[in-house]
Design a protein around this nucleic acid. Structure first.
Lengths: 249, 249
DNA sequence: CTCCTTGTTCCGAATATCGGAATGATAATT
DNA sequence: AATTATCATTCCGATATTCGGAACAAGGAG
């Protein structure tokens, strides 16, 4: 493995948390010699992955181009988008599409309601698999070996006021989710936000994505959930069918 | 400058044109030793910038995360979006927001009409500064030194049926654009598409972005242009004002 | 004026990369 | 079944590259 490239990525990763950083700030965080950091930053600027604004560095515009290309090439998005629009109309809530990337959940599409309610999700955003309805539905439908490995080694960090931090509770929720075919979350990723999620299957029957309806907590009473779940399941099945899924769900 | 990083970027750049590539294909294009390409690809996979699907490589999902972050942090987008929505309603055409990244134009936001007319633009897409209304308006309002340097060294490549390929003609169009305060293009980037564009200025009076109205060629007769230009100029001025622009436009 | 801090350049040492060749694995062909 | 071909992956020694401490330059603050 290429050591230089790995170090360079470490530098780039700093910008996930910080919008702008000066050279000394990067040096402090990376605990690497100033010269090395200086050179890496120079290289990244040359590539367009970083750019310099005065004495601050920030992420570069090349990343926008690459990111857009990736989004464009994810065909599940194309398939899902019209169904998501329909689901939004039916539920009057925001709809999210999430896939798994390694041990993280990644939001790849969303459809918003007109009302400007703050929601946690943004396309490109990541969340751990244990927190939130959509991530957890992905976890629930992972294959057993992977899921066990994940559950063993994961550390549950509190993100919002009701993030699950007890492994026993998590295991129970995951089991429940798999049996019921849907998951619910309240204030796990962002306070006062709730969501219901179901899995989407591909032609091999693997759960390749999660579909969720999300909004402010007061609109997700048990009654609301009962109303939403069938709509959600139907939408997910429509998408799964288009991906070649043959099973019954 | 870091040679390893530069080579690695070359590899990544292959994926701008190709969705998927195998190792031998990459080797052929890069004309580098197989081992080197192999190692670089491995590293990029480790970073999440590439991923392997069977024996093919494709762009990785980390790029989506970084790309979304860059988009989120471009505050001109936030400022422009509501104005762009309004302009779309007024003109019933797609509206694009473009900035300059080095010697290229970069589409950073767009608002579409409901009618599913094919347009060239996608967020993250790039175009040369000489082709298309929006790119050329950026060129027209670049500072003179940069613009001259660009015009001297640029090679005009035909992209669609009416791409300007004569430097004299380009110079004339650029001059016109600067004098009139707007530019028009027909079938320069994509056949049968037309656009009108105006500049957006920041607090320093620099033209930091271009705003365009775009649609199918038949809807952009000289009369239409006369109707659209004032609306476009007003919208651009609204955005410029929010960015702190004091001038008269 | 002096003391920090920060950005940038230099250069010799060391090490990480390089790439040819070998190996393993798989599929296609005779 | 044996053979050939293609591709992915591993090995290893030579060497080109990176590394990082130190020095230098340029402000800014006290």
């Amino acid at each position: 493995m290429n050591k230089t490239v790995l170090k360079t990525k470490e530098l780039l990763d700093l910008f996930l948390d910080c919008e702008r950083l000066t050279l000394p700030e990067m040096v402090a965080r990376l605990r690497m010699p100033k010269t090395s950091v200086y050179r890496m930053a120079q290289s990244l600027v040359a590539l367009g992955f970083l750019q310099k604004q005065g004495d601050q560095y920030e992420l570069g515009l090349s990343l926008l181009t690459f990111g857009a290309l990736v989004a464009e090439r994810l065909d599940i998005r194309r398939v899902a988008l019209p169904v998501m629009e329909r689901l939004k109309e039916e539920t009057k809530e925001a709809v999210n599409l999430v896939i798994r990337d390694g041990d993280e959940a990644l939001y790849i599409e969303k459809v918003e309601t007109s009302e400007p309610v703050r929601v946690y999700t943004k396309v490109g955003r990541r969340a751990p698999l244990y927190a939130g309805a959509c991530p957890r539905v992905l976890l629930a439908f992972m294959d057993e070996v992977d899921r066990e490995r994940y559950l063993e080694q994961v550390e549950l960090v509190k993100i919002a006021k009701c993030t699950v931090t007890d492994k026993q509770v998590l295991r129970r929720l995951v089991e429940e989710g798999r049996n019921q075919g849907y998951t619910v979350s309240c204030s796990e990723l962002e306070n006062y936000s709730a969501a219901v999620a179901v899995p989407i299957f591909n032609h091999e029957g693997a759960a390749v994505a999660g579909l969720s309806v999300a909004g402010p907590e007061p609109r997700f009473s048990p009654d609301d959930v009962v109303r939403i779940v069938p709509l959600l399941k139907q939408a997910a099945m429509d998408i799964s069918r288009e991906l070649g899924f043959q099973g019954k769900g």
